[in-house]
Computed example of a mutant assay.
Amino acid sequence: MTLDRARGSLLGLAIGDAMGAPTEGMTLPAIRERWGRVTGFLEEDAAGTDDTEYAVLCARGVLAAGSALTSQSVAATWTDALQHQSGGFHGAGFSEMIAIANLRAGLQPPQSGQRNAEMWSDGAAMRVAPIGIYAAGDPDLARRLAAADAEVSHSRDGVFCAQSVAAGVAVAMTADSVDPVIDAMVDALPTDSWSARLVRRALQIAEDAPDLLAAEEALFDQIPLRHYIWADVAPEAVALCVGLLRATNGGLDVIESGVNIGRDSDTIAAMGGAVAGALHGMSALSAAQVEQVRSVAGRCIAATRGTDLIDLADALVQRSITDRTGQEAAR
C-alpha cells in the first residue's frame, strides 16, 4: 500500500501539472467559454512542466541526504543538475530562475531565497511532495525537510506553504480520510501568517458551498489576489488547493477542479494531485494518464529527462524504510 500511495502522489502531481498547463493563467470563465470543462489532457504530447521536474530535483536531494537534508545539500543538488544547462529552462518560474542566478553568483541559502523578488511564490510548494512521501506519517519531519528545501529559493510564506504541502502529503500517505490531511496542512502554517488567513478563508468558502461547482466559483471569486500581475502567489495557490481538497472531500477530482479553476492551475492541480494521489494510490489513477506522464520530459530541466516517476517513488519509500530501520537500531 505504501508503494501504491507513493507512486500515486508523484503521478498525481504530474497528471495535474500536465492537465493544468494549458489553462495556466486563465480565468475560470475563460476556461469554461473555451472548453466547457477540462476533464483530460488537452494536448497529444501533454507532459509535466517545471512543477514535476523540480519535484524530481527535490526527490534527488532527499535520496542523497535522507533526514539529514539541509538547504546547503539541496543547493548542491541543484548546482549539480543545472551546472551544464546554460539555456532552455522552458516554463521555469521566476523564483527558481532568480535562485539559480543567486547560487551561480555565490550566494548560499538562506540568502539565495531571501534575495528573491518572488520569495513568496508557489515554486517551493509545488515541488515538495517527495519530502512528504519520505516522511510518511511524520508531518513534523516533513515540515523540517520542506523548510530546508524551500529556503534555497524562497522565504517567509513561500517556505510556509511548502511546509504545508509536504505535511499534507506525509499525513495523506497513512490517512484514511482527508480530514487529518487538511488539519496537518493548516497546522503547518503560522497562525498569524498571510497563508494561514487565506487558507482558513478558503476552507470556510468550501464548507459553505452547496456543491463542487459552486465551491469552485466562490473560491475563484474570493481568493485570488487580482491586484498582482502574476498568479503564482503561494498563499493564493495553496488556499485554492486546500479549499478544493475540502470541496472534493480529498477525492482525485481535485485535479480536475484545480485545472478548471484557472490562475496557477497547473500548480494548484499538481499540489492537489500529490495529496489526493497519496490518499488513494496509483491504482485509483487512470492507467492511460499514468503512462502519459510517467517518464519525465525534461523540457525545463534537461537533467531530469527520462526519469521514471514510479521508480523514483519506489526509491523514496526504500530510502525512508532504510533510514527508519537504521534509526531504530541505533536507539
Rank of each mutant, 00 (worst) to 15 (best):
A231K: 09
A206I: 04
R127D: 07
R197Y: 05
W194N: 11
R226C: 04
D208L: 14
R201Y: 02
A136T: 10
L213R: 15
Y134S: 10
E151Y: 04
A135N: 13
D138G: 03
V159W: 09
D149C: 13
L219V: 01
P130I: 05
W230C: 09
L219A: 02
D192Q: 13
I131D: 01
D179W: 03
A206F: 00
A142N: 08
I131T: 05
R197E: 10
S155A: 14
D183V: 15
R143C: 06
P235A: 15
E207Q: 13
D140I: 10
A172N: 09
V169Q: 10
L244H: 04
D138A: 10
V186N: 01
A147L: 12
Y134C: 05
P190T: 07
Q204K: 13
A215N: 01
A146M: 10
V178D: 11
V238K: 04
A188I: 02
A247L: 02
R246P: 00
D179K: 12
R127T: 08
S153N: 14
V242I: 06
G132R: 11
D211C: 00
F220V: 05
A196R: 08
N249P: 01
P130W: 10
L141E: 08
C241N: 07
E216A: 15
R156C: 08
R143N: 00
P180G: 14
D211M: 00
L225M: 08
P210K: 09
A196M: 01
E217F: 04
A142L: 07
G158R: 10
L141I: 01
A214R: 11
D208A: 15
R200P: 03
A214N: 08
A202E: 00
L212Q: 06
S193W: 08
D221H: 15
A150W: 10
V171H: 02
R246Y: 00
A188G: 04
A214C: 07
A206T: 06
A166F: 01
A234D: 00
V233T: 10
V171K: 01
V171T: 10
E236F: 11
L213P: 06
S164E: 03
L240S: 08
D157I: 10
I182T: 13
S153G: 12
A184W: 05
P235F: 09
L244I: 15
C161T: 14
Q204Y: 04
A234E: 05
I205W: 15
V165D: 03
E151C: 09
R144F: 02
A202Y: 00
R226D: 00
V178A: 12
G137Y: 08
A206Q: 05
A188F: 04
S155M: 11
S177Q: 02
A196P: 02
E151W: 04
V186Q: 02
V165H: 13
A184Y: 06
A218K: 11
R144K: 12
Y134V: 07
A237R: 04
V169T: 12
T191L: 13
P139F: 06
A136P: 00
V159I: 15
I133F: 09
A162M: 08
S177D: 07
L212M: 03
D138F: 09
D211V: 00
S177M: 01
V178Q: 10
D138L: 03
R200G: 11
Y134I: 06
I205V: 15
H227K: 05
W194S: 13
P224R: 11
